[in-house]
């Protein structure tokens, strides 16, 4: 979503993005003239008249599970967004019985918070796991 019109979105998709992604952008390219929605989400920069790079993960109940906001010159890390979605999906599937520690990726150990784990995380989770 940006402040550009749907007409400009079409030009950008047809003339540039479709050269990066075969078939063009497969999801809706949303238009937010005046930044009304961006203001609602707290990422509209009134001084510059544009939206900053805000990314929101919204679960199937419509609840915001996470967000990240960057200033314009730095691009996002899509892989990190996907990792977060996978983590939120796992937690949701476990109905909150599991949690994903720092550095978690699909396939890695999760934690099962409860009385027995209090003060024992050091036994099952090592700091190196945040980086591998």
């Amino acid at each position: 979503m940006s402040i550009d019109s749907v007409f400009v979105h079409k030009m950008w998709n047809d003339h540039e993005l479709s050269k990066m992604v075969e078939g063009g952008v497969p999801y809706p390219m949303l238009s937010d003239a005046g930044g009304k929605v961006g203001t609602l989400y707290g990422i509209y920069d009134e001084d510059a008249g544009v939206e900053t790079r805000g990314r929101f993960i919204i679960d199937p109940d419509g609840v915001v599970q996470g967000y990240e906001v960057l200033t314009p010159p730095v691009g996002r890390n899509v892989a990190e967004s996907l990792r977060q979605i996978q983590a939120f999906q796992l937690v949701r599937q476990s109905k909150g019985t599991e949690a994903t520690p720092s550095g978690w990726k699909p396939g890695k150990t999760t934690l099962k918070p409860g009385p027995d784990l209090v003060g024992k995380v050091w036994e099952v989770w090592k700091t190196s796991m945040a980086f591998d």
Binding site: V50, I58, D59
Partner: peptide, 16 residues
């Protein structure tokens, strides 16, 4: 989109 996971992305502008 209720019932689905949604990623909502804002960006400064087309062709940035």
């Amino acid at each position: 989109y209720l019932g689905k996971w949604v990623v909502l992305c804002f960006y400064p502008g087309d062709f940035t």
